[in-house]
Design a protein around this nucleic acid. Structure first.
Lengths: 257, 257
DNA sequence: TTATTATTGTGTCATTATAACACAATAATA
DNA sequence: TATTATTGTGTTATAATGACACAATAATAA
């Protein structure tokens, strides 16, 4: 699942290039139309979707592998991937799922293929600015598109569980991660940031209290007004003061305990 | 590194039993004499110490493997292991470290041994009640003892990094983990719980404020007084109300954001 | 031109949480 | 009986939180 290898090569001789038993799955979150989205690939020959994942070269750092895999399967690059969990179930990969996929691209996968072995999968997540992304699918997939978190399609293997775990991790680490920094454009209204926090935390926040609190951290800079075209008062735009933001995150936006 | 296999078998035919490329390392925290401790094995033939780790059987769930490995290397069982990170560096295992270890137990390890391959290691941590533990070392180790976190001996591979990461994870998740539940005996004075929080958070807490706060969560039950023998007032002992405690942890002891 | 609508920026206020310190009570020892 | 160390609890100032209020203001409709 790397650009350097064709599918045929992957099947026939992937074993000699890749680290056995280890795979990567990336959960990419985006924010658009006031909703948190996740990037999925439609598996060729099926109605099922999957996360952009792949394998690790024998002499490659796993983080580098996560970055490379994501680029080759979706075209995305220059984003901050964060490892969050390992999915190690013995029943993760089944031939019922893999065989039709490879058949659809004109290749036969035998029971003896190294791809049919057990793989544990290292989960990475990233938050990306939706507008900056033009994902394109690889050979194995027919589509690469954003999906609403509340309305996911059928997912292969344990990918639903992986997405849920990524979101849970994000929730627990909400005060230690640069939530809005990567999900929003350079300039944005406070309401957008509030909606992201509400989605991640799974509850409504009071607008006034949210504004005062987030501004109180001293990590935002007020910019010009934004005339949205709606029949209402125009909000000010803000941008992150990157240095102050990352300094504040070191100890957490709110102290623990 | 399992009881069913001898060291000789591990070297000669481990490859056919174990999942390639994947290993486990356990960080076991204990609390004794008002200090947070970590359990280490002294590597035979050296002054270096290491975490109790091992390998995963081909058809074994990784969590089961973590439990089995810990039992076989230290004798510990019935504790709650929590996965926290994967260490995937390409340079983790070096022959300079492994060879002398196996030589010391009378076995030669060649460059071609499967043990010399690259392994990524899945980190698990557990909090255990110090008094309930009688660790004993396995064949590869001369000692299995507790070490003060502030005074660690020389550690092999990236085990220092693994311990640091475990502690950092614990710190971030402090409001979502049953911190004291596993580290303390059934009944304990509030001061002991306070010291654990102070160690994990790395700062002093005010006694009065801590008492009021922790009691305010309604997760502790007051028991009889404990006459310690010291020249001072005797503290009350407390025990956790297990059900209430775990319910409170679901949303976190303190709400995020 | 004026009224209507939706949303913004900011204000208020009661409640709760936090931090820092105070002090009497009390086991054991001198 | 005095001393010592530590406990349970109290006080007070400051800060954070949650719930709601209301005038200001873009765009649209009357």
């Amino acid at each position: 699942m790397d650009q350097a290898l064709t599918i045929a090569e992957l099947i026939s001789s992937g074993k000699q290039y890749y680290l056995p038993s280890v795979s990567i799955d990336n959960v990419i979150f985006g924010f658009h139309e006031n909703q948190l989205k996740v990037l999925l690939l439609q598996i060729r020959s099926s109605d099922n979707w999957g996360l952009p994942g792949g394998y690790v070269f024998k002499e490659e750092e796993i983080e580098d592998a996560a970055v490379r895999v994501l680029k080759s399967r979706t075209g995305l690059q220059d984003l901050f991937l964060q490892q969050f969990y390992v999915f190690g179930g013995t029943k993760r990969v089944t031939k019922e799922i893999l065989k039709p996929v490879f058949k659809a691209i004109g290749t036969e996968l035998t029971d003896e293929s190294w791809l049919m072995n057990r793989f544990i999968s290292i989960g990475y997540y990233a938050l990306v600015e939706y507008e900056k992304v033009t994902p394109y699918p690889d050979e194995l997939s027919t589509q690469c598109t954003w999906h609403d978190l509340n309305n996911l399609p059928g997912l292969i293997l344990d990918h639903k569980e992986i997405i849920d775990k990524a979101l849970e991790t994000l929730r627990i680490q909400v005060n230690h991660q640069p939530i809005g920094y990567n999900l929003l454009p350079d300039e944005f209204p406070l309401k957008s940031l509030q909606l992201i926090y509400e989605t991640i935390l799974g509850r409504k926040l009071d607008r006034g209290n949210f504004n005062r609190k987030i501004l109180g951290y001293g990590i935002l800079e007020k910019k010009q007004k934004h005339y949205s075209g709606g029949a209402h008062k125009a909000p000010y735009l803000y941008s992150f003061l990157k240095e102050d933001y990352f300094n504040a995150l070191k100890t957490g936006l709110k102290k623990d305990f």
